[in-house]
Design a protein around this nucleic acid. Structure first.
Lengths: 146, 146
DNA sequence: CGAATCAAGTTGTACGGTGCAACCAGGGAG
DNA sequence: CTCCCTGGTTGCACCGTACAACTTGATTCG
């Protein structure tokens, strides 16, 4: 096995380890907001409001899944739906102040955890690692996505 | 925000993206072996056989969860249980030939996917990326694990 | 215009993975 | 022998997910 193949093997293994841990730990970290809910709220924040269908497309989820997630988020008052006057089928989803508040809180908390984990990394390594991850994810969302 | 903080922000975001995608894509990639089953089989291969409790400890899973996973893997003939003659409570789990075969197959398939994603990366970057991931995961499994 | 078609969301149903609590069975310490 | 510990199973509940059927509103085309 070449050095490159060994590295790929390691990347595969470590990514798998990370993936396996992520959900459970996210749940333990923030009982009030699952990883899914967190990412959905985050997308609403970035986009400044979008439709359920957009969320489904962006996260490659079934629309029924998104529908239920959205319903739950509305029930707990973190988002609100507004009928689009131009098209009565669509509901524009937006963060409520409460949703924004909890999203900020969880983001801060997550950031603190990551910051601690990466605390003694040289800046140069942090920048390279960030770049690698972006590059990897970009490749993974292209052909044969996943 | 300093450059280091920006990098940490990116790492956090990209890791989250990856985590969110991983399970679903793993399921789509190999319908015959979930990500969990895959990692459990992998651990049995590396360890050359161990107890359910060891798996639970290693992967931070409830023993009931492992018990069911193991039961399913035995049902499908991928692993076998053998009573430990020295302690009748413990069952030593081992890969069956069928289990080894399917583990090899899925490993090859996963490896191919990763290889393709990383195909045009310079070897130097691959090695660094692998190192960063190992380092990150090691930090994440230490204090405040997850 | 009206019928067929398409798009956005909801609901019923089913499944997999998970945790907690209660339990059972075997081992070890006093 | 009794008490407690440990390995494992089972009942129950929950979440996230997909698929399929359906509803409602928009669009297209004869």
């Amino acid at each position: 096995m070449t050095a490159a193949e060994t590295a790929i093997e390691t990347i595969q293994r470590e990514m798998t380890v990370f993936a396996r841990r992520a959900r459970a730990s996210a749940g333990r970290m923030h009982p009030e907001l699952s990883l899914v809910s967190y990412t959905l709220l985050g997308h609403l924040e970035e986009s400044g409001g979008c439709r359920a269908t957009d969320l489904a497309a962006h996260y490659v989820l079934d629309k029924s899944t998104v529908s239920r997630q959205v319903a739950a988020l509305e029930r707990t008052g973190l988002i609100e739906r507004r009928q689009d006057p131009a098209d009565h089928r669509v509901q524009v989803l937006r963060l409520t102040p409460a949703g924004q508040e909890i999203l900020d809180r969880v983001t801060r908390s997550r950031r603190a955890v990551f910051r601690e984990r990466l605390t003694d990394w040289p800046e140069e390594d942090l920048k390279r690692f960030a770049g690698y991850l972006e590059r990897y994810n970009a490749a993974a969302s292209g052909p044969a996505a996943g």
